[in-house]
Design a protein around this nucleic acid. Structure first.
Length: 824
RNA sequence: GCGGAAAUGGCGAAACGGCAGACGCGGCGGUCUUAAAAACCGCUGGGGGUGACCCCGUGCGGGUUCGAGUCCCGCUUUCCGCACCA
């Protein structure tokens, strides 16, 4: 075993000595290397990998240290645990650094990774570094490209135009964050929306399946957010025939209000607008469209915004009553949802109501609520509730309650061939194109001859060129890199141009956890055997900020890979736990500009990693987070010192067979503590787990100068302490375990078991209430009979006084807890 | 606007419908010390009482219950997500 172990054997608690010593031993003995082991069940715990910004923040510690404790606990409980780490290494900051400081994104990123890896080492986490995954390396991103090609072949990838922000001065696309108040971040030129050909992953194909969370232990909050994000709506599709003979399909969740449609509204970008607009309206329509394009997403979607729109001069016929209704365009109708066109029913839809009022359009009531009569002229808002259909031809008199009218109307539309039932989702397909350098090149080539050609698999990876120019122009360096762009067509061998867009980094994070089991596998994205053993992830931990995007994309990817025959399960993460956020001491988000950043390196230097880990776990419930408090950490430092003292400076451990009262009580306390600690850590309740350990150590501190230290109960208590602490304070626990003569390593010991009988209390305090108010407390043997308990309660001096001359109406008994005597 | 979560001492927080405030920070007092720090011990929700004890107290107003921080109804405030989704 370890040779380095010979280090100083100080009697003082010196965290840095322990850290250095045990890091070396753990490294040398490969304590955290993990491989398949059929003798134990596997447990795959992944904590979300960080972006290599260059500095390990206290927030990283908050995410990782408790995760590590939980993974270690599972290991001691007998699981074969994999707990890997990697880096989400592509992304914009590296590219910005390249532009600002003239350092290549690769150099910058890898230097940051180097530094963060060292910082993580000090944390003492059981990361298996042999499995490290770095997404910016060709050995990783090659498989992004490979997946892209598989998706492409399976019809899960398509190319379409999508609006992007365009700066006419820089001649480039801008990300949403680069548009400041409608102007280019760099040159302050007014930007506008422009349609660009971009690549999409067909996420909507799995919309319905993504709504199913069966068998997943996920926070309700996350499931709700995903359901809202997917936004499933049931309704109907119907078509309105225009005067030029084109049909305009609309989607509605209220087909029972079809008869109340008094006009139509199209999104300004709707493809039919151009052809439908009459000559006399053209100028106004074009001006409106131009204006709509200029507005930012935020301006356009602000709820309190007054409705705007213009009439385009055309009419369409309502299929249910053959009425001609005017067609308008307005930006409150979105091209990306439904069909990009609506029937407007102002009487029963608030948005349409506002629009109709503003532009003097007809409001026609087709649902009459019970007990009142709606009159359009006096309505102040739309009526969206239930009632009875009126002005609706054959459906007059149909009640809308319970969706019955909707069903009847859909059936009738289908019968007439004018419409059908339809489900629509708010979920959009995933736009993966980024006009950036530092990402995975999309493996596509454009040939004048052959058109869009996929790069053949045997030519992957399409590697990022190393000598591109990083100029502050806003144009992607790939776009101007002639040597990269110019290539030959894989099909005809003629001259061709490479796609210069790269992939969204969410593509990388959609499958990195399938790479850890075989991080250097080169015959595919992952070794199917290894993934079959380790995946799916049993426990995933990370921030709530990934509730929709990352977690949805990872689920989508998993389903797509399953359908490609690469995986044999449906969901990537069986259990999910979201930790909270650590705020600055001023209760604000930590940021350099606010100067409220807590540096974990400083804390480790001062107090040692174990104390920092403990404090982060103790500060609040893990899923809650909260402001940092620099004073509070002292309590954990004291705790750790007390642990040290109790274990290292207590004389006798010779087993004295005499079972004194103290010894019996201590044994019970030990088992009770093991039970609480076990239950708490299993439930991620680290704060109460530590509170129980503090009580335990406080009790041991009191007892350490008594004769009980010569009993077997004391040895048991003292030996159980490093075992219970091992997940939380890995260095301290390892050192104490060694000093107690335990076999290396404490982290390979089985988790201590408790005897349920010993863990149960021997005596309990029975609360005696009179009319619900506590009047006495009696210490009684646990498991006391109701009869005896009530008898004792009634004979209590104080109770006697209060009962004097009053009638007992009722006695409530809660076993081992209380007696409540109700008197009149 | 819609959806979700939360509100408990000076502070972070505990509390299967059953002793509110475990544990920790801070504060006060003490032991040790020339002194300080550290360590250790005691006290620490508010009010009253010499005292045993009594009254009040978990954002606000109701309700259910022998009993409510906890369950139900209605508010207020804060945080988070979505936000003209037809």
């Amino acid at each position: 075993m370890a040779t380095v172990k010979s280090a100083v054997r100080s009697e003082r608690y010196e965290p840095h000595v322990l850290e250095r010593k045990w890091q070396a031993v753990w490294e040398e003995t490969g304590l955290y290397r993990v491989r398949k082991d059929d003798s134990r069940p596997k447990w795959y715990h992944v904590t979300m990998y960080p972006y290599p910004s260059g500095d390990l923040h206290i927030g990283h510690w908050y995410a990782m240290a408790p995760s590590d404790a939980r993974a270690r606990f599972q290991r001691m409980r007998g699981y074969n645990v994999m707990f890997p780490m990697g880096f989400d290494a592509f992304g914009l900051p590296a590219e910005n650094a390249a532009i600002k400081r003239n350092i290549h994104p690769y150099i910058w990123t890898m230097a940051n990774i180097e530094r963060m890896r060292e910082q993580m080492r000090s944390m003492g986490a059981m990361f298996d570094w042999d499995r490290e995954v770095i997404t910016c390396l060709p050995e990783y991103y090659k498989w992004n490209q490979w997946f892209f090609l598989q998706f492409y072949r399976a019809g899960l990838v398509y190319r379409a135009t999508a609006p992007v922000w365009w700066c006419p001065n820089c001649q480039t696309v801008l990300a949403n964050e680069q548009v400041i108040a409608g102007r280019c971040e760099r040159c302050d030129t007014e930007v506008y929306r422009r349609d660009l050909e971009q690549w999409f992953f067909r996420a909507t194909r799995y919309a319905d399946e993504l709504l199913n969370f069966d068998g997943m232990e996920w926070p309700e909050r996350v499931k709700t957010m995903q359901r809202n994000w997917i936004g499933r709506s049931e309704g109907a599709r119907a078509s309105f025939r225009t005067d030029i003979g084109e049909d305009i399909p609309i989607f509605t969740t209220r087909p029972d209000t079809l008869w109340g449609a008094t006009f139509m509204v199209l999104a300004p970008e709707h493809p039919l607008v151009e052809r439908l607009t009459t000559e006399d309206r053209r100028a106004a329509v074009e001006a409106y469209i131009k204006d709509a394009r200029r507005q930012s997403e935020i301006e356009r979607t602000a709820t309190d915004k007054e409705k705007t729109g213009v009439f385009i001069g055309a009419y369409a016929t309502n299929p249910v009553n053959d009425e001609r209704v005017p067609i308008w365009i307005a930006d409150y109708v979105l091209m990306g949802y439904g069909t990009g066109a609506i029937m407007a029913v102002p009487a029963h839809d608030q948005r349409d109501f506002e629009f109709a009022r503003k532009f003097g359009l007809e409001i026609r009531v087709v649902i009459q609520p019970a007990g009142e009569t709606l009159v359009p002229a006096t309505m102040t808002e739309a009526y969206a509730g239930d009632g009875v259909m009126v002005n609706s031809g054959r459906f007059d008199g149909t009640p809308t309650e319970g969706g019955e009218a909707v069903r009847l109307v859909i059936a009738w539309l289908e019968e007439q061939g004018t419409g059908s039932g339809e489900v629509t989702y708010r979920l959009r397909d995933w736009l993966i194109s980024r006009q950036r350098y530092w990402g995975t090149p999309i493996p596509i080539v454009y040939c004048d001859h052959c058109g869009v050609v996929a790069v053949p698999e045997d030519q992957l990876p399409v590697v990022l060129p190393e000598d591109s120019e990083f100029a502050p122009t806003g144009v992607s360096p790939l776009k101007t890199d002639e040597r990269f762009v110019n290539t030959t067509c894989p099909r005809c061998g003629g001259p061709a141009r490479r796609e210069t867009d790269t992939m969204d980094t969410f593509v990388d994070s959609s499958w990195y956890y399938y790479r850890y089991p075989s991080p250097h596998f080169d015959a595919g994205p992952f070794d199917p055997e290894k993934v079959a053993y380790w995946a799916p992830v049993d426990q995933y931990t990370g921030g709530i900020e990934h509730a929709t995007m990352h977690l949805m994309y990872a689920r989508y990817f998993t389903k797509a890979l399953r359908d490609l025959g690469l995986l044999s399960f449906d969901e990537p993460f069986t259990r999910l736990f979201n930790q909270g956020i650590i705020l600055g001491e001023d209760n604000e988000k930590m940021s350099k500009s606010r100067g409220n950043v807590v540096d974990p390196d400083d804390l480790v230097a001062q107090l040692g990693a174990d104390v920092v880990r403990l404090y982060l776990m103790f500060i609040a419930p893990w899923d809650q987070g909260g402001p940092w408090n620099s004073r509070g950490i002292a309590g954990l430092e004291r705790f750790v010192r007390r642990v040290w003292t109790v274990v290292t400076e207590t004389a006798g451990t010779a087993a004295d067979e005499v079972e004194t009262d103290d010894a019996r009580r201590l044994r019970r306390l030990t088992h009770r503590t093991i039970r609480s600690v076990t239950e708490d850590i299993a439930a991620f309740q680290f704060n109460t787990m530590i509170a129980r350990l503090m009580e335990f150590v406080n009790a041991l501190t009191t007892l350490r100068e008594t004769a009980v230290t010569r009993t077997a109960a004391w040895s048991e208590a003292v030996r159980s302490l490093p075992l219970m602490l091992a997940p939380s304070t890995p260095y301290l626990a390892e050192e104490l375990w060694e000093r107690l003569g335990g076999a290396y390593s404490v982290h390979q010991q089985p988790w201590p078991q408790y005897d349920p009988q010993l863990a149960a209390p021997e005596s309990v305090v029975l609360v005696v209430q009179v009319n619900g108010k506590v009047r006495d407390r009696l210490e009684v043997q646990a498991g006391i009979t109701e009869e005896r308990a009530v008898e004792l309660a009634r004979s209590s001096q104080r109770v006697q006084e209060l009962l004097d001359g009053r009638t007992v109406r009722r006695v409530v008994y809660v076993p081992d807890r209380l007696v409540n005597i109700v008197v009149g």
